[in-house]
């Protein structure tokens, strides 16, 4: 099989992943897009291994990446769960707690806290 086909597929997958990360607002969708990007890399690893080296190092690395991806998605979903519990939504645009705040915004926050 020519190398170009899996590479093209990987590029397509990666671009979809990038698009998903940049454009979607739902955090779970973001995680899924990350997975797409990771799997695009995995595909690259396997493809190059089969094409030139052929001693399974690339495939081994891919297995590692899958494992890491599993851990990462677990952590990510836990954060998402906390986000949902704390804020009642999973909207990436709305989760701006770490942003530099204007004085007016800060005062609003303080007043909100007082109100609660």
């Amino acid at each position: 099989m020519p190398l170009i086909l899996p590479l093209l597929l990987a590029v397509v997958l990666f671009c979809i992943g990038v698009y998903g990360v940049l454009a979607r607002r739902n955090v779970i969708t973001l995680l899924m897009a990350f997975e797409l990007m990771l799997n695009a890399v995995n595909l690259n690893l396997v493809a190059f291994d089969a094409w030139r080296i052929n001693d399974a190092t690339g495939q081994t690395l891919a297995v590692f990446v899958i494992t890491l991806a599993a851990a990462e998605i677990g952590l990510g979903l836990a954060i998402v769960l906390l986000l949902f519990r704390g804020h009642g939504h999973v909207d990436a645009d709305a989760a701006r707690d770490l942003a530099e705040q204007d004085d007016a915004e800060r005062n609003e926050l303080v007043e909100q806290e007082k109100a609660t």
Binding site: L22, A92, D93, A95, D97, A99
Partner: peptide
């Protein structure tokens, strides 16, 4: 400069990409 710090992850990522 503080205008850059929107707090929105996607903005940062866009800049990085």
């Amino acid at each position: 400069f503080r205008k850059l710090q929107t707090g929105n992850v996607q903005t940062y990522l866009t800049a990085a990409v």
